[in-house]
Design a protein around this nucleic acid. Structure first.
Lengths: 218, 218
DNA sequence: TAGATTGTTAATCGATTAACAATC
DNA sequence: TAGATTGTTAATCGATTAACAATC
């Protein structure tokens, strides 16, 4: 999950673009290409070439070569390292309903350095079951088990009305980062990292863009 | 989905905060409160009070009253109207696997002005089935059916390798906005609205914040 | 009245984009 | 050499925050 050295003030915007670069570069590598220019990346990903070069400068030690560009292999390695995809971090999932099941079933997380070690649900029918190899425990066990497993990341996939309570229990168990998929605003201590996956917000932004597009062509 | 009148240049940042305001205000209303100040909203939602007032100014016609604040009822009505939650827009879902099923099963979308009218999958075993009342069709039927249903929004929940193809078919069917949950960068005409739900990007940002927090307290 | 709160203008901050010399 | 491309400095853009008079 990245080591101390790399924790310079890299902007959220840059970090958010890195996974897209990584996917793109892997595609190029699979296609047999060896080098890539910032101009090419920018064009394909609809970004600004200077932005791409700056992003690369932040995470990469190797310099690009005029006329040639960057070594794809090097870039992939640097991004993987920066994002901490080499070493996996454990996480727990709370909520084994529809979305929770989908998240547990999504095998891709391990590639992103995340390993879901346990799931929790308060529904007795789900407790004891296993979601894609992840065992479901009773939510009552949450703080105790999280502490014992020494887990730092909690994923919340419960209804909005239960999210705050779950978040409190995660924090009580020692979790330091919360990935919140519930439609709820969580009140948390300042030394806990939170990322809200607010579907309503995303949809609102998409809808407004759509409305703009339709309006413009009228 | 908002009407022409409201399509001024409201920033994406503001639009993204509106759903959070709405949830918060509904909570307050349920708790029996009648008015709310921007200072109170800002404190509870960990925002800046000026920002809250500016956001409100953009979407609301009614003015706040010094010493009192804003009428909660009015604000809720204005945000609902601005976000177009009153009138529902149809959408199709492509991919009836784990995530697709979770999205189809998520009843909340209707509250957000989105109505999933059909799902598609290329897996014959899923075709003909129904996900929470949403019928699954063969992906082959996609362009034809999308056009016939006159659907403007497509939700992509297929593996990354299939996302571009699906996007092309959605566009061919007349879709004008794409909500992309697949880990893939889509190449699309400029007059198509896209919102990428990039889980890897979200996780990267959360992980870096966690790393920072852990680093600081060392 | 006194004080909390609004609405708005100005200042700051952060991120993107433009310009351009250096270089392979 | 000529030209594509890099790396960096400066300019621009957009969003957040600070300052403050108006007002209920």
């Amino acid at each position: 999950m990245g080591n101390g050295k790399e924790i310079t003030n890299v902007s959220k915007a840059t970090i958010g673009r890195l996974p897209a670069y990584l996917r793109y570069l892997k595609d190029k590598e699979s296609a047999g290409e060896k080098t890539i220019s910032s101009t090419a990346i920018a064009e394909d990903l609809r970004l600004n070439a200077v932005q791409v070069r700056k992003d690369i400068a932040v995470i990469s030690s190797v310099a690009g070569k005029p006329k040639l560009g960057f070594e794809i292999r090097d870039l992939i390695e640097d991004i993987n390292k920066f994002l901490g995809y080499d070493n996996v971090t454990d996480a727990v999932l709370v909520g084994a309903g529809g979305l929770g099941r989908a998240l547990a079933g999504y095998g891709g997380f391990k590639n992103y350095g995340l390993n879901i070690v346990a799931a929790f649900d308060k529904n007795p029918e789900l407790v004891g079951k296993s979601l894609n190899g992840v065992q479901v425990f009773d939510t009552k066990e949450l703080p105790k088990l999280v502490r014992r497993l020494n887990v730092l990341i909690g994923i919340i996939a419960v209804p909005g009305s239960e999210a705050q309570e779950v978040a409190d229990e995660l924090v009580a168990g020692g979790v330091r980062a919360i990935w919140n998929f519930a439609p709820a605003h969580l009140i948390l201590p300042p030394d806990i990292a939170v990322k809200n996956e607010d579907m309503a917000a995303s949809l609102a932004i998409l809808s407004k863009r759509l409305a703009e597009i339709l309006y413009e062509e009228k």
